[in-house]
């Protein structure tokens, strides 16, 4: 049933989001804190001489305002944002889990491996590569203090274009694999990589890391970010396969349809 598969996706997504949040809390938060310390040191230097120390909330009032405030005067405290990490990843997990469940319902038996467990892992792996790895390799995650606030609009657009190209390339891959069934995996891989590599080459590069920003911190943050997504999608693939297999095993036998 589609409904069962969808609800399963939402629940598995919630669990996966919370697992990813645990990883992000222990591995990623120290990097975020370090980057915010650098950001605040930089903005205090810039603001020296002004008596109204309150940095404007750039996102709220004005897209073009220079600083994204992480100071004491902010709307949500740092501990609040660290708790918000769990909420954000739980909601994100539910969201992608729901789409995953519907994609599972629509694609199972049409592409990829036949068994539930293998297909769940296949689908989660494809989603991670297309929607996370492909954009990450062109526009990697940035910690606070990296990135020019004035270009947030164009950077967001480029990021979403890269996500879309990754997902559309999955369609190209499926079409190629179907066209050349004798070389299925090779044709699928080539059909995926060609449009992705062309897009990587053609889309503009973003290079906005401030001079003097510690390279090790940037690297550690990016590894933590990719790791968070990897935990999320690995959990979705494994957990969805497990619950679906259990569901199928406990389904009444009279429902089984010989194929």
């Amino acid at each position: 049933m589609v409904r069962t598969l969808l609800v399963r996706g939402l629940l598995v997504g919630l669990a996966a989001g919370l697992l990813a949040a645990v990883f992000a809390f222990f591995v990623g938060e120290p990097q975020v804190d370090n980057a915010i310390a650098i950001e605040q040191a930089a903005s205090q230097t810039a603001e020296a001489g002004h008596d109204d120390g309150a940095a404007p909330h750039s996102h709220a009032e004005d897209e073009a305002a220079p600083a994204h405030s992480h100071g004491e005067d902010e709307l949500v405290s740092r501990p609040g944002q660290q708790a918000g990490l769990f909420l954000a990843l739980a909601l994100y997990g539910v969201s992608v889990g729901g789409i995953f469940g519907l994609a599972y319902a629509g694609l199972r038996g049409r592409v990829g491996p036949r068994s539930d467990r293998a297909f769940a892992a296949f689908l989660a792996g494809a989603a991670f590569v297309a929607a996370v790895l492909v954009p990450f390799l062109k526009y990697p995650a940035n910690p606070p203090a990296v990135g020019d606030p004035e270009t947030i609009g164009s950077r967001t657009t480029l990021y979403l274009v890269m996500v879309a190209i990754g997902l559309l390339s999955l369609g190209v891959a499926a079409a190629c694999a179907r066209q050349f069934p004798r070389y299925g995996p090779a044709a699928g891989t080539a059909g995926f990589l060609v449009p992705v590599i062309v897009a990587w080459a053609l889309l503009p590069t973003v290079d906005e890391v401030p001079g003097g920003f510690p390279a090790t911190l940037l690297w550690d943050f990016r590894v933590a970010s990719l790791g968070t997504q990897l935990v999320l999608w690995t959990s979705i693939g494994v957990l969805y396969g497990l619950v679906t297999r259990r569901g199928a095993a406990s389904a009444p036998m009279r429902d089984a349809v010989p194929s």
């Binding site: 992000a24 909330h57 918000g84 954000a88 990843l89 994100y92 940035n142």
Partner: peptide, 14 residues
């Protein structure tokens, strides 16, 4: 602001 850290660690431009 509440979702701020999650957004960064998910790799979305902030």
């Amino acid at each position: 602001e509440l979702m701020h850290d999650g957004r960064h660690l998910l790799g979305v431009p902030c």
